[in-house]
Design a protein around this nucleic acid. Sequence first.
RNA 1: UCGAGGGUCGUUCAAGGGUAGGACACCGGCCUUUGAAGCCGAGAAUGAUGGUUCGAAUCCAUCCCCUCGAGCCA
Length: 564
Amino acid sequence: MNINKSDSIHSSDFIRQIIREDLRTNKYSKVYTRFPPEPNGYLHIGHAKSICLNFSIAKEFGGLCNLRFDDTNPTKEQSEYIESIMKDVRWLGFDWEDRLFYASDYFDKLYDYAVQLIKDGKAYIDSLSAQEIREYRGTLTEPGKDSPYRNRSVEENLDLFKRMRASEFEDGTYVLRAKIDMSSANLNMRDPVMYRILHSTHHRTCDKWCIYPMYDFAHGQSDSIEGITHSICTLEFEDHRLLYDWFLEQLNIHHSQQIEFARLNISYTILSKRKLLQLVEERYVNGWDDPRMPTISGLRRRGYTPEAIRDFCERIGVAKTYTVVDIALLEHCIRQDLNLRAPRVMAVLRPLKLVIDNYPEDRVEELEAVNNPEDDSMGTRKIPFSRVLYIERGDFQEEPQKKWFRLAPGREVRLKHAYIIKCERVIKNEQTGEIVELHCTYDSETKSGCAKSGRKVKGTLHWVSAAHSIEAEVRLYDYLFLRENPNDVEEGSDFKANLNPDSLETLTSCRIEPSLANEKPGTRYQFLRLGYFCVDIDSSDEKLVFNRTVSLRDTWAKIQKAQK
RNA sequence: UCGAGGGUCGUUCAAGGGUAGGACACCGGCCUUUGAAGCCGAGAAUGAUGGUUCGAAUCCAUCCCCUCGAGCCA
């Protein structure tokens, strides 16, 4: 058996292995997949995993992937969500071409399938209330019992079903159920509801219907109608596969193979549409695209790239094990992508005035700065240097800690792209003791790029020229939740108890170098020594607003932590 | 308790009878006009117990642990 050792059967995730085997044995001759969201919320990164899986698999095997909205519950679904979902899938870089479908496209067909099952004696109309159905269903350990209406005649079932459709009955008075086995150990097989009465306007079919199929009666048949070969879904549907298969067998129609994989979980993050909706509705965040949200739209606004998200989805792998992926991996992916692509600029978030006493008052130099040391083709730009600058407040310590090699009284540092300076004097507010200004001298021999610029100092600081810099607002984001597992709470409390009160910090008096003026929303930069930032849509002509996508790795922060 | 599925470094994914490997994280070093990036290195795992076998993460048995399941949600 060692002959096949290098065979690609063992070279990728279990789903691709199954598909390869299905192709080899001619179970299917082509590969069709689908991404089937319910339009009841915005897509999040967990969906991205599924999107990447389905579209990538189709592409790899020369097949196609459809986009299909699973819109069988009009009480929860809205067109707004449809729009956002299509936008997000496209933004992620996937194309369903002309294959945009809706489960609601199949309502007529589904109705016919239901009639067929009634005629075959495999479905019946139940008059039990929802409460009674629950009671009759039994429990995990006890079998259910048959509904007293289970043996209505085919004629009566047909008649009742027609009248359900014809809007003769109130919501909840009747349901259509499959006649399977009330004592099955699999609860899904205990005569599952196929249709319920819902007098609710559907976002697409409007008021054409007042009965709607349940997920179990819609999904498999929709797959079948579209000729899907591999219906990839998450683990919680594993128990439904028996029912999925049952309907397709009874109906004797094209049978796609359902395959389940483990959904994505990420530390410090919640990926439940229901809970995300709650955060939005109860205003814990500013909408679905709040940059703290794990939604695609939130990540996009935050500055994440589709490439980074796709890379992440590849790296996390596909398996059936319950897992929680370290959010550090997501951060690594975006850093790695942006490192190569984002131009470097200088921005001072918490400005501290610095005066170079021996630099002429009226002098302004245009210094050359490389835009990206990782990519020479990104060129250079000029930045103004003058006597009065701003540096980062955090880059000065009056009484320096161990291993500190930034600025301190008497110490020298390099100003990036400029000169080496030495701190001569600290000016404080006499009342508060707050440091308000630093006075330094510069060494004119040490200009960046010049022959004698080779002198080494330990620290290099970013800076902006006070007179030339422009003001900006910068929003710093931290994890939305304080705990790795946001659902880990005391009895009687819920995930909201773990919300991080400091997940958003807004800095309004930041100074950025003038080359950034007039940038468009979405533009991404590395603010030197700080992190990756992108222009937010809240920016106006008067003021730029930046989101911090992710900070740079911070070794100094680790040293500080270790010193404590 | 019943059914389904799953247990491999801290995390995640490989290896499917033949040297347990990668990535992220962590730690150490080199380099550095970003304490970034990059480069080099280290530590670190087969849930347990038996069995089969020359050889077991892989096959068998028993046990333990985790996830999901009792919507007219998907």
